[in-house]
């Protein structure tokens, strides 16, 4: 329980006081900040709505003529709300935050890269290295390589979409599971880590491709 500084009302931790509407916000996790249940599946429309709704009610403009303490509280609550919204909006960062919230580290016991993915990473990186060399030479070869890398990029984006679908399924399993400790939970943690890692490797590779193709265009 926490106590509202403005009206003294005791209540469960939440972003703003249930009685007088003063901003609170201390000690909240990001789900609680948005008044959402601790579930991984989040309806994006509801998230938007809640964010804007709460944002209006704790907006610093509303407290401009109030005490310093309330003005401060409003600023802090707004910052927390924004962080909660940004983190939970994107399923990948939501999943990463979930791990953190449950005391897990993504990299723990999770260093091996699936063989087919690793092979793809090295192949594409070779292509990028070739492209860097070819760019300084005559046009035809660079053109061909650029096309090949561009195709890879499309493929990688498709793989990320696949990864995102796996993520959604994993979220649903978590929500159905109810959070009890045990083998089922450990398996969900590992599965979540693997999907998030796969997406991380794919994103890094796409970032490198983007860089190379953009600089190739500029050259």
């Amino acid at each position: 329980m926490i106590k509202c500084q403005a009206c003294d009302r005791e209540q469960q931790p939440r972003l703003l006081c249930a009685q007088c509407g003063a901003p609170l916000g201390a000690g909240l996790d990001l789900f609680a900040a948005l008044g959402l249940p601790r579930k991984l599946t989040i309806d994006p429309a509801r998230l938007e709505q809640t964010y804007h709704d709460l944002g209006r009610r704790i907006h610093p403009d509303r407290f401009a003529s109030k005490s310093v303490r309330l003005r401060d509280a409003s600023l802090r609550a707004t910052a927390l709300l924004t962080r909660a919204y940004r983190t939970l909006r994107d399923p990948v960062s939501r999943g990463l935050y979930w791990l953190e919230l449950n005391g897990h580290k993504l990299a723990d016991n999770n260093k091996s890269v699936p063989a087919d993915l690793a092979e793809m990473v090295f192949e594409v990186q070779e292509q990028l290295a070739d492209l860097r060399v070819a760019r300084d030479g005559s046009g035809g070869e660079a053109e061909r390589l650029r096309g090949a890398v561009d195709e890879r990029r499309t493929e990688l984006h498709r793989m990320i979409e696949g990864g995102s679908r796996e993520l959604v399924q994993n979220f649903a399993r978590w929500d159905a599971h109810g959070g009890a400790n045990g083998a089922g939970r450990d398996a969900l943690v590992m599965e979540l880590k693997l999907v998030l890692s796969k997406i991380a490797y794919l994103r890094t590779l796409i970032r490198d491709i983007d860089r190379e193709l953009d600089s190739a265009q500029a050259a």
Binding site: S112, V113, A118, Y201, T204
Partner: peptide, 13 residues
């Protein structure tokens, strides 16, 4: 040995 750092997505062989 092929290993990866999932925090940043880098891969090493």
């Amino acid at each position: 040995g092929v290993v990866g750092a999932p925090e940043c997505g880098d891969v090493m062989k």
